[in-house]
Amino acid sequence: MFGGIDPTLLLAALIVASVPIILAAIGELVVERAGVLNLGVEGMMIMGAVCGFIAAVETGNPVLGFVGGAAGGAALSLIFAVLTQFLLANQVATGLALTLFGLGLSSLLGQSYVGIKPPLTGDVPLGPLADLPFLGKVLFSHDWVVYLSVASVAAVWWVLRSTRTGLILRAVGESHDAAHALGYKVRRIRVLAIMFGGAMAGLGGAYISLVRVPQWTDGITSGAGWIALAIVVFASWRPWRALLGAYLFGGITVLQLNLQAAGARIPVEYLSSAPYLITILVLVIMSSGKGKAALNAPASLGQNFHASR
């Protein structure tokens, strides 16, 4: 116990609190590695939250709820994909519009679901592991999505680093002109990446409405999507760093709640703005250094591709 805060519970809560951010961030990381800047993460997350909630309530099955959440996020991202990849709309403006649209649409869809309890997502029974002192509580008493989030980071890291698919994806994000000259389908690859990002964001959103809260209210994601975006930059587009970043930010969120509960004298506003301040700080350090970190950004990030030749 440190000042009324139990470290075991704090760490366990941190891991759970970070799940939505990890899922959304790892999805956005793939999108950005393919050279697309989708600022609509918040909108896709909340669409995932509402679609997941509806699917889970209607079917009574939490797993189908997560599937629905991923589908909802992917469907919204498809709008972004069509607008930016085929109609060549500005990615920043389209992404922002996507967030606003998602917030509004989710509010409409969720109207009749306010105040309902979703079916429960239980912990994965890990038997004796869960009974270990400290570690059992921190690491082995979670639901399956927690493990999925870490597994997805590992999978994305492995795919980007060691597979041809990952190499092509990075190549497209690095120079779409060169990739096109070599005969790769820049558009198709980017659309698939965008949809993957949408599905992951949707999954993260569904986790909020099905596990974290768990109920439906308007604006339930409350900025998690923006944090995910910040984390991708913070992590300089590296998967494991994104995981670290998400835990760091999740930790600050949880700590802030705990500190409030413990009656600490630090104003809440300082704590809740901390993640963003840290991101700005990291960005400044990265871009002033001109070191390797600054160069790690995908070179074609945010540029539209048009096969003019």
Binding site: R164, A171, A178, L182
Partner: peptide, 24 residues
Amino acid sequence: VFQHFSLFEALNVAENVALGMENP
């Protein structure tokens, strides 16, 4: 062999070569 290089600056030589091959 292209006039304006069809190369990826942030990738290494082997990766660049692999991208130009069918079944590397």
